[in-house]
Amino acid sequence: MAELSATPPKIEERPSALREFWYYFSENRGAVFGLWVFAAFVFCAAFAPLLAPYDPTEQFRTHILQPPAWQEGGSWAFPLGTDPLGRDMLSRLIMGSRYSFFVGIVVVCVAVTGGVIVGLLSGFAPKWVDTLIMRVMDIILSFPSLLLALVLVAILGPSLTNAMIAIAIVFQPHYVRLTRASVLSERQKDYVTSARVAGAGKARLMFKTVLPNCLAPIIVQAALSFSTAILDAAALGFLGMGAQPPTPEWGTMLAEAREFILRAWWVVTFPGLAILVTVLAINLMGDGLRDALDPKLKRS
């Protein structure tokens, strides 16, 4: 028989969850960069009225289609130039960050809440309910997301709110599937059985015991949906089915600027660049989140 050592081995204190997360997250330099850009974007959205030099709908009739400051004919009064109605591009872009941020937050919250609840139900419900829910999700997933969102907006009427509702509905099935898959694998584990034996009710089992252990892939997916939601909302705005003019939403701005593309490059370039940079930053951050939270999904 092996001899037991006299002194118990020193137990190393586990680093706090947040510190552990930051350790893995900060290993990915792109993710940290994305986080900074995203922070700047959130700052912009929060303090937009203070940061914007002008009112985004104010029209300077004497400065129509003025180029950016560094180009001939530009002035530092309008650093990024003006649009066809003489509105300051910079102010509109800054205000536009609010709409994109809003779209991302609302869509992700609605889709995650709905998807997680339905996914949990599906994972715990009897077989036939589960099958029914999954078939309904399959049906929604059969439609290309942008097309379904477009048709939903056609039914509800074009506006930013309806675009957000449509996008949230379209994103829902991803969360349902993701939650259900994690629930099914977690349910088999011993800690769930012991909780059940200890007398935990269905609701407690679902939300207190199992859900916290399914969160990692959901959080990663939420970060990625945030960027897709911004892209889709901008696409709907671009097609005239999202935010309506004169709202300074980035996609809507692009749609308004389309006919001037060959005359004034700046009215087209900047709103798109704003979308690209924001979406890219969030995707970079999402990659880092995945590496830090979900080692199983880690891509080498």
Binding site: G30, F238, G272, L276, L280
Partner: peptide, 25 residues
């Protein structure tokens, strides 16, 4: 992989307009 991530994040309607500006315009 950086370019792939940029491509993946691309709003394609804007990408189309940029290509039109450069190659057609």
């Amino acid at each position: 992989m950086s370019s792939a991530l940029v491509g993946y994040s691309m709003p394609i309607f804007w990408w189309a307009l940029l290509l039109i500006i450069v190659f057609s315009g």
